[in-house]
């Protein structure tokens, strides 16, 4: 490769918050590999990175697939260098009240949102421990702290990631690898755009700053946590929610 750039791996990067993070990190000078579950999603990542004049790319990856995660990390390492920045952003919802929640709905959310963080983090640790430097940022949710009716699976997965991160931060501190979470509230993405006017009003009523967050605001915080100035922050969950949940 032409120059030594730190490689950043961002899962779920084809749109929304993940895309904003990938663009931010690329702009900050990282070589970014973004993943998406579909071919078209991966192509979209490559397109927007190229359009921005950045030299990263998209790859297809189902983070629920153990072997695929290992293969992608190996592939990235061989092609660009070991990823020393990992942003676990990929996530899904399968909302239902618990009394109606099917085992598949529970399992799919735990697998993609929680177990995938285990998989991707573990796969990247070899490179990070060797480099004696690394950054893992996990995107969680205000719902992990507050709970939300109809999202017991999602809330459990996100709270689980936060506990995981605290444990991992303790394991890896001696190697200058930090592990943190960013917990967004309501952000202006496809997901919140799908809400109707009443839902939107109710949501804004809970937010002191009376607006949705921008994906770029989440990305800026992730960018900070990945950078050198954040080297003394680890095991932390940083909330970014317009004041709707003040810890």
């Amino acid at each position: 490769m032409s120059e030594e750039k730190t490689v950043a791996l961002v899962t779920g990067a084809s749109r929304g918050i993940g895309r904003a993070i990938a663009e931010r990190l690329a702009g900050d000078g990282y070589r970014v590999v973004g993943t998406a579950t579909t071919e078209s999603g991966a192509a979209a990542i490559t397109d927007y990175l190229q359009a921005g004049g950045f030299d990263g790319c998209g790859m297809t990856l189902d983070v629920a697939d153990q072997a695929a995660v290992e293969d992608v990390v190996k592939g990235v390492s061989a092609q660009f260098g070991a990823p020393l920045v990992l942003v676990n952003n990929a996530g899904i919802t399968r909302d239902n009240i618990l009394m109606r929640m099917k085992p598949e709905e529970w399992q799919a959310v735990i697998d993609t949102n929680l177990s995938a963080v285990y998989r991707a983090s573990k796969a990247c640790l070899r490179g990070m421990t060797k480099a004696r430097w690394g950054r893992i940022v996990n995107i969680t949710s205000v719902v992990g702290a507050m709970g939300n009716a109809g999202q017991s699976n999602y809330a459990a997965s996100k709270a689980g990631v936060e506990g995981f991160s605290r444990a991992l931060a303790r394991e890896l501190g001696s190697r200058a690898i930090t592990v943190n979470c960013v917990a967004p509230g309501f952000i202006d993405t496809d997901m919140t755009r799908a809400l109707n006017e009443d839902q939107r009003e109710a949501m804004l009523g809970q937010i002191p700053l009376a607006r949705l967050g921008e994906a770029s605001e989440i990305a800026a915080l992730v960018g900070f946590l990945c950078g050198s100035h954040a080297g003394y922050i680890t095991g932390e969950t940083i909330h970014i929610n317009g004041g709707m949940n003040m810890a």
């Binding site: 070899r126 421990t129 060797k130 190697r175």
Partner: peptide
């Protein structure tokens, strides 16, 4: 060695 050292040693 601690447990992480032993993993790195194997690596």
């Amino acid at each position: 060695a601690d447990s992480l050292d032993t993993v790195e040693l194997v690596m």
